[in-house]
Design a protein around this nucleic acid. Structure first.
Length: 493
RNA sequence: CGGGGUAUAGCGCAGUUGGUAGCGUUCCUGGUUUGGGACCAGGCGGUCGCGUGUUCGAGUCACGCUGCCCCGACCA
């Protein structure tokens, strides 16, 4: 075990491989035998659960309620909205039969051809269609609006190439779907949810994000506007971490969702949808981790503090066991999750390395030396600094330390990102620099041609038109045409 | 679906001009250890991806198939 874990590739050598090994060795997830699918292991799932719980509370604070809609979508639903079907058709899993039978040699099963479905069912790649088909029955009057539903579920998109957490055929996510009486209200909701995502990313995940709006080509299939949060990974590539779509009346019209307004006139409902997925786990891992393994922000760490005893014999261990109990109780009283690892089959050095690999924020070490002096050794995962402190008041010390670490991890990520955002006016210079990663603030003439050319020549794409950036008109670096504003261009996952 | 690689023990690998399977690690047992990934001794574990061919004989050679990995296209 020991040496096997030690062989974590350095980030600088091969970022992709480092990421893969980290996910597996930190016990977060592994590749399933099922093509393109992922097994999320208990430790990884514990982080996802924490994220879910926080997000869920944030949604509810804005009036959203949870609901659940079917996994299977009749094929015809998907074709109601032209752009939507165009966007997803190529990656849908299709259910064609409902029964198996034993084969002729009785040593296996085959699909029963007699059980062919009249209309094929699609495993949802996203639920706009089935939800709007349902909303049709729910919405008659302006008094029925708004409808603010969210569902936690799995979806399936048959991707060509998959990567743990970042892109898997099946993934877990939440998808919110709202219906409104006015355009303004829907647009406001779409922007509101983007803010929720941004706040969650920065406050809890300690992942700084750029908020913005997508260009037309990068827009969600069927949306009028797609708002996005873009995070920067440690290799300088962008990761689209959450999106919120203003869908206009496209789905209202496609599914004939009409309501009578105050003037007793029929109108189509206005829609939004928004989602974040287990991809956020990828963002979390790639933003903070180092060559020793995972670094978790305290607010999301399943284990915030691990206590490790150092002992020479059984008697000493018992002494330490007794000694640790009140410390554990005091920490727990402050809402801190603590694990005391007095397992006898692993040596301290192994435990140190293992909990670092798993990103546990704080480690307390207690040995004979500490028993005598009334002290404890404290190690913080973000800086790997060790310090010996008095046991008296340790709980307050740790509490403060966890708060500091949350801030420090965030600040570190902000500094990294800001150091890799460049304003760029020259296309040749851009082509050179973009290979090494980073976000490039460039003037864009707004044409698809320019966008396509950049993508083809550099593999970089327009991530978004950023909010909160002072925009001045300029000249497009590719076409030389006038540009109204700057966009963020980067290579992306 | 293109371009490149790879397939041998749970994992990571070696295997020479073809001669009948090996190393490291994990795991199990016992003992000594324990302030940064312990050591010693013993043990379990393999139709060499699948198929066909060449040969007295194939992990090794030839042909076909399949899986996986990496790089593109697609995408949260």
């Amino acid at each position: 075990m020991a040496k096997e874990l030690k062989e974590l590739t350095k980030r600088s050598v091969n970022y992709s491989e480092w990421y893969n090994q980290l996910v597996v060795k930190a016990d977060l997830a592994e590749q399933s035998d099922v093509r393109g699918c992922m097994v999320i292991k208990p430790y990884g799932y514990a982080i996802w659960e924490k994220m879910q719980r926080i997000l869920d509370d944030m949604f509810k604070a804005t009036g959203v309620q949870n609901a659940y809609f079917p996994l299977l979508i009749p094929k015809s639903f998907l074709s109601r909205e032209a752009e939507h079907v165009e966007g997803f058709a190529k990656e849908c899993a299709v259910v064609t039969h409902y029964r198996l039978k034993t084969n002729e040699t009785h040593d296996g099963v085959v699909v029963d051809p007699a059980a062919k479905l009249e209309e094929e069912l699609i495993i949802r790649p996203t639920s706009e269609t089935i939800i709007w088909n349902t909303y049709k029955n729910w919405i008659k009057s302006y008094r029925d609006l708004p409808i603010l539903c969210n569902q936690w579920c799995n979806v399936m998109r048959w991707e060509m190439r998959t990567r743990l957490f970042l892109r898997t055929s099946e993934f877990l996510w939440q998808e919110g779907h709202t219906a409104h009486a006015t355009r303004e209200e829907a647009e406001e909701r779409a922007k509101m949810m983007l803010k929720v995502y941004a706040e969650f990313a920065e406050k809890y995940m300690a992942v700084p994000v750029v908020q913005g709006v997508k260009s037309e080509t990068e827009r969600f299939a069927g949306a009028l506007d797609t708002y996005t949060i873009e995070a920067m990974m440690q290799d300088g590539k962008a990761l689209q971490s959450g999106t919120s779509h203003f869908l206009g009346q496209n789905f209202g019209k496609a599914f004939e969702v009409q309501f009578l307004n105050k003037d007793n006139k029929p109108e189509y409902a206005w829609a939004t949808s928004w989602g974040v997925s287990t991809r956020l786990m990828g963002a979390l891992i790639m933003t903070h981790s180092d060559d020793n393994g995972l670094v978790l922000p305290p607010l999301l760490a399943p284990i915030q503090v691990v206590i490790i005893p150092i002992y020479k014999n059984e008697e000493q261990l018992q002494q330490i066991d007794e000694h640790v109990k009140p410390i554990q109780d005091k920490l727990r009283a402050l809402g801190i999750s603590v694990k005391y690892d007095n397992a006898d089959n692993k040596r301290p050095g192994f435990k140190f390395a293992d909990y670092e690999l798993k990103g546990v924020p704080v480690r307390l070490v207690i040995g004979a030396r500490d028993l005598e002096n009334g002290t404890v050794e404290v190690m913080r995962r973000d800086t790997l600094e060790k310090e010996t402190v008095q046991l008296e008041g340790i709980e307050a010390y740790v509490k403060q330390l966890l708060d500091d670490m949350q801030q420090n991890i965030y600040q570190k990520a902000v500094s990294f990102r800001d150091a890799h955002i460049y304003e760029c006016e020259d296309y040749e210079e851009f082509k050179q620099k973009v290979k090494d990663g980073g976000f490039f603030l460039c003037h864009w003439d707004g044409t698809e041609e320019t966008e396509a050319r950049i993508k083809e020549e550099t593999q970089a794409t327009i991530r978004c038109v950023p909010f909160g950036v002072e925009q001045t008109p300029g000249t497009d670096m590719v076409s030389g045409k006038p540009a109204k504003y700057r966009v963020i261009i980067a290579r992306a996952y």
